[in-house]
Simulated assay, not measured.
Amino acid sequence: MRTIRSAIPVALLCLCGLSACSSTPQAAGAPDSAKGAARPPSAGSPAPARSATPSHSAVPPSRRPASHPPVNYTPSWPDRTTRTDAGHLVDTCVPKSLRDKATTLTTSDGVHLSALELGDGPDGVLLDHEQGYNICSFLDIGKELASRGYRVVIPEYRNHGASEHVADNEHIDRDARAGLAELKRLGAERVFLGGASCGGTTAAVAGADGELPVVGLLMMSSPARCGGVDAVAAVRKIDAPSLFAVSPGDMNGAVEKQVREVYAASAATRKRLVVDRSGYHGTDMIRLGPHGGELRRDVISFVVAAYDKAR
């Protein structure tokens, strides 16, 4: 196990995975919570230095399937939502230069999700954000992976950002499944699953269904269970290389306990547990932590190595 050390005091953060979620917003910047979706901290902080890991082999652009038509619905955070030239709703945290990459997904229960589609090629990456955060949590990582030749889909979950406001968060696993189905529709032949907090839990559950071959898994601060979604059962079906990251100070150690439970249950023969002592939750370990640049490079390198191993 590799440990990232920090002198920063421990931050006590709350976690949706320890109880069911609703759609009631919290104070800005709070992570997954029993009260549902909160507005995220600013996504505009400078990105850490890019990894020195060799780039993934370039994939010639393929013919894309027809785009989804835009849909009219009530977004979760109207004051943080704008409409693209093509008519799709997108979170204003997304830079204007990337808003043409926005689309609208529809889940199996009819909920409309704003999503970003970056890159091209048969090697897919699904990136699922934390409850209480938004589509930009993984945007920097998604952009870099797309530049390396991967096809990336980042859905924004129900009751968050520009995605549809609905009565509850009881079926967020369907949001992860919608992102995975979109990767397959676009031509991905296999997938690396990534997510933070309940986004990691639901990514694992969606990937375990076998919609696409799984080449790797990333779970950051992800609970063993998020509402009725069980990551322990899911990771027992995923033997691909898996990376788990957590901060011991997150919710007084409750998050670490659950991450270790998932790590122990993982069927992966190649798995790593990274302990970050910053006290931050999910992607905040990368965005705000003193060793975030190192962790970010680890994540990128892990995705690249997982695909190299799968070839």
Rank of each mutant, 00 (worst) to 15 (best):
R64I: 00
A86Q: 08
T81W: 01
H88N: 07
L89V: 03
T81I: 04
S67R: 12
R63Q: 01
A66R: 13
G87S: 01
V59C: 14
P69V: 00
P60D: 08
R80W: 15
P60E: 07
D85Y: 06
P69H: 03
S55F: 13
T74Y: 00
T84L: 03
V90R: 07
T53A: 14
T81H: 00
R80N: 07
R83Y: 00
V71R: 14
R64F: 10
S67F: 14
C93T: 11
G87I: 05
P61I: 10
T82G: 03
P69D: 04
R63A: 03
H88K: 05
D85P: 05
T92L: 08
D91A: 14
A86Y: 12
R64M: 03
V90T: 11
D79G: 02
P78W: 03
T92P: 02
P69S: 02
P60H: 10
P78K: 06
T92N: 04
S62E: 07
L89G: 02
V71T: 14
S51N: 05
T53K: 09
S51D: 12
W77F: 15
S55D: 15
T53Q: 12
L89A: 03
A58V: 12
L89R: 05
A58F: 08
P60C: 09
R83T: 02
A52L: 11
G87H: 05
A58N: 09
V59H: 15
P65M: 05
V71I: 14
D79V: 12
P61E: 06
H88V: 03
P60L: 14
P65W: 14
W77P: 02
T82P: 02
R83K: 07
G87W: 04
P60V: 13
V90W: 10
A86H: 14
D85N: 09
N72Y: 13
H88M: 05
W77H: 11
G87E: 03
T82Q: 11
P70S: 00
W77Y: 13
S67V: 08
P75S: 09
N72F: 09
R80K: 12
T84P: 01
S51F: 07
S76M: 15
T82V: 08
P78L: 06
W77E: 13
G87K: 04
T74C: 04
T53S: 07
A66F: 13
A66K: 13
S76E: 15
T81R: 02
T74L: 07
R64A: 04
D79K: 12
P60K: 13
P65C: 01
P65E: 02
Y73A: 11
S62L: 11
A86K: 10
D91I: 10
A66E: 12
H56W: 15
S67A: 13
P75F: 06
S62W: 13
T82E: 06
S51G: 08
H68W: 11
P54L: 06
